[in-house]
């Protein structure tokens, strides 16, 4: 039974950790998106706070730096009235030799209620969640805030919220994911979410050197020619070129990449006239996206950031309320 195997669901079938979008049924994804809608209104109030997580301690465990992601989780937790403790572990205990699980045990001993985990290694949040269960701390919820090349589920979910906000229905859409798919945990989460939600035409556009082998098996059509791939799409999801993760010569140069795979107004003109342009940030202007597009009328990149707070609030409230 799925409920027994999926480590993200408790015995009542409720979401208790968010580790990956892969394996989550459509009903749960839809429920998260539905729950996020009322939370987005909270951020527009005079008092941008609701008391759901009052008295709870949320630990941001960032074994890999990411000021932006950490900040959005921090804001989301604070708007739920939680106490937030930020730990940049690459600059602390890990350097002194403490293991991942020792760190988790120590924080559990401090009566933590939720861990937001960012780690350079795929599977680290899963390992922590599993360990907490074995160690009798299964009241502590774990959210994966990006692990290696594996998953970044809240980014995938906020992207789905954004698409649903502008396009209403997933089941008639053409969606293109463009750029550095190879290094992108965001792309994996997006692909799992989009296929689960029933997008019939899902494309990835990238040079062969930036595509993982066997990506077609996830249910996507691969295009190496960006102009061909963008034809008639409703949604263009750009990815950040992750130069910092590239070892060796995957690309001739960023200028060359921009020429072939940068989203420019003339390439965007091949998509549907009402197509939206998304980017998970931070953007490399002039590398994967032209400023004229990034700042243009079809870009929904800043709304993505705003929706991200509501989606993270919804996920935290659902996890902390699972019984």
């Amino acid at each position: 039974m799925r409920d027994k195997q999926n480590p993200q669901l408790n015995r009542n079938g409720e979401l208790t950790h968010l580790l990956s979008i892969e394996g989550l049924p459509r009903e749960i994804l839809t429920r998260i998106l539905d729950t996020a809608a009322p939370f987005s209104e909270v951020s527009e109030r005079e008092v941008k706070k609701v008391p759901l997580l009052r008295g709870k301690s949320v630990f941001n465990l960032f074994f890999e730096n990411s000021t932006r992601t950490r900040t959005t989780f921090e804001i989301a937790a604070k708007r739920l009235s939680a106490d937030v403790i930020n730990l940049n572990i690459n600059t602390s205990s890990a350097n002194k030799g403490e293991t991942l699980l020792d760190t988790a045990d120590n924080l559990a001993a401090m009566q933590a209620d939720m861990f937001i985990v960012r780690h350079a290694s795929s599977g680290a949040p899963h390992l922590i969640a599993q360990h907490l269960g074995v160690a009798g701390h299964d009241h502590i919820h774990v959210i994966n805030a990006g692990d290696g090349r594996h998953a970044h589920p809240t980014q995938g979910l906020l992207d789905m919220y954004t698409i649903r906000h502008y396009k209403k229905n997933f089941t008639q859409l053409s969606v293109a994911i463009v750029g550095d798919v190879l290094h992108s945990r965001v792309a994996r989460s997006q692909i799992h979410a989009l296929t689960t939600l029933g997008v019939p035409d899902l494309r990835v556009i990238a040079p062969k050197t930036l595509l993982p082998t066997g990506i077609e098996r996830l249910g996507v059509k691969v295009f190496n020619d960006m102009r061909e791939g963008l034809r008639g799409v409703d949604v263009v999801m750009m990815l950040r070129l992750q130069s910092e993760r590239m070892q060796g010569a995957l690309l001739p140069s960023t200028q060359e990449f921009f020429k072939s795979y940068g989203l420019t107004p003339d390439k965007l003109a091949l998509a549907k006239p009402d197509a939206i342009v998304m980017h998970p940030g931070p953007m490399n202007r002039g590398v994967e996206i032209d400023s004229a597009v990034a700042d243009g009328g079809q870009a929904v990149i800043l709304p993505q950031v705003t929706f991200g707070i509501a989606v993270r609030m919804a996920v935290m409230a659902m996890l902390a309320g699972s019984t």
Binding site: R31, D34, P38, S40, E41, M318, G321, T323
Partner: peptide, 21 residues
């Protein structure tokens, strides 16, 4: 929709189908 202010959240979790206030 008072779901975010209910006093039984910690026993019962978040109300399904919370609406926007």
């Amino acid at each position: 929709d008072v779901s975010f202010y209910r006093d039984d959240y910690h026993q019962r979790g978040l109300h399904n189908n919370a609406k926007t206030s």
